[in-house]
Amino acid sequence: MFEARLVQGSLLKKVLDAIKELLNEASWDCADSGIQLQAMDNSHVSLVSVNLRAEGFDKYRCDRNLIMGMDLTSMSKILKCAANDDIITMKAQDNADTVTFIFESPSQEKVSDYEMKLMNLDQDHLGIPETDYACVIKLPSGEFARICRDLSNFGESIVIACSKEGVKFSAAGDIGTGNIKLAQTSSVDKEEEAVIIEMQEPVTLTFACRYLNMFTKATPLSPQVSLSMSPDVPLVVEYSIGDIGQIQYFLAPKIDD
């Protein structure tokens, strides 16, 4: 028996919004410790990893490890039927071929349930090595979304250059070039408005705008985003999911031939 109840159901709706453009289908691995999803996009350029801790749920039970392969378009359609303040419960029997989503209004006066067929997915699972990144940049997630959107007007790629002076995002294309520089904030009233740079050594890497823009669909999940970079390894774009977990996007850099 698997059952996970989340009073803040809107978080799950936001998680789906954050992955459904990148992934058509994926497996949710349910275990005693929580729920995890790892999947590559169709072109295998990026990898998405979602981690929802068992303690983050208001009720969590997982008697046996369970892999639930889901069509994310279908799952998203179902979650669209939940109101933002609904309590969401996911339920499945051991060895089941369906999962049930239960939505309860905060007053408990309306209860809906939707059953969805599960899929058998044969997906590669990649091992992500522990890495000490040369640069970790924390910035407001809305600012990052704005930068990616603005620079996408100029070219297909964004160059992210991090040094002790700050971080510079640049794009170049037919209409010209764009550069956006962010300095580390000296003092801020609110922590989520801060730009914080932890740097061991300067790093400059180039990434595809298309993917960065898809990652920023996670913006509603968290006021801050962190970008971790090291030379010649994938960028990690990480958003926290309330207090219950985090979503990480790994994007392979573009490399000079």
């Binding site: 590559m40 295998h44 990898l47 590669d124 390894v233 994938p234 790994f250 392979a252 490399i255 000079d256």
Partner: peptide, 14 residues
Amino acid sequence: MSSQKTIKNFFKPS
């Protein structure tokens, strides 16, 4: 010219 590698170039199947 820069080219896009796949993520599999960096992370091995576990």
